[in-house]
């Protein structure tokens, strides 16, 4: 199974790189779909049906919306030449990669050994989980009972996103209604 996962992950990386490099926006979005649907297969192989279900429907809807937007915009990428600044960008990228690796090494040295997790919190969820929440699906029990504030935050983020989209896009319609 690990071999299959590695093959799918390599395919996803290839899709991501292609969607960055593609000339046409539509083929870039379709290549981006490889990443999302590959992730669905990964979740299913790792036995996470809740995540796989959410991922496959959200991926489909966002792909539809992005294609519907792109079909009516300028699809061809505009040419922009490489200046001398690209050398500076590459240098900065390597500097930040070095800094990131240094601090990553420093922070992870204090954590517990790889593969041995801190199980204090998880045990409190797993053992009395079904009796405590009354939910047969333990994932839903954790989402809506133990981690209720997380779900409230997610719903608020979605609400704010919709308000932002409506503010940007529907300005003209509201003005014309007011007249």
């Amino acid at each position: 199974m690990e071999l299959l996962l590695i093959v799918i992950l390599v395919l996803m990386i290839g899709g991501a790189i292609f969607s960055l490099e593609a000339r046409d926006l539509l083929s870039a979005v379709i290549a981006y779909g490889i990443v999302g649907f590959g992730l669905v297969i990964c979740f299913l192989l790792l036995q996470a049906p809740d995540l796989a279900l959410v991922q496959i429907v959200v991926e489909t809807i966002t792909l539809i919306i992005m294609i519907a937007v792109i079909l009516n915009s300028t699809r061809e990428e505009k040419e922009h030449g490489k200046g001398k600044r690209s050398v500076v960008f590459v240098i900065f990228a390597f500097v930040f990669i070095g800094l990131f690796l240094y601090f990553f090494n420093r922070t992870t040295s204090t954590l517990s050994v790889f593969g041995e997790h801190m199980m204090r919190m998880s045990k409190a969820y797993i053992q009395p989980g079904a009796e405590g929440t009354g939910s047969a699906n333990l994932v839903t029990g954790v989402i809506f009972d133990y981690r209720g504030y997380d779900t409230l935050g997610e719903a608020t983020i979605l609400f704010t996103a919709v308000i932002g989209v409506l503010t940007v896009l529907r300005l003209r319609g509201r003005k014309e209604q007011g007249k």
């Binding site: 796989a52 279900l53 959410v54 429907v57 809807i61 699906n137 839903t140």
Partner: peptide, 20 residues
């Protein structure tokens, strides 16, 4: 949602998908 995989997020997206 409290019995089988899924729940509010997945089901809500499917309902939005039917309208779309």
């Amino acid at each position: 949602g409290h019995l089988t995989p899924g729940g509010g997020f997945a089901g809500g997206t499917i309902i939005a998908g039917s309208f779309i």
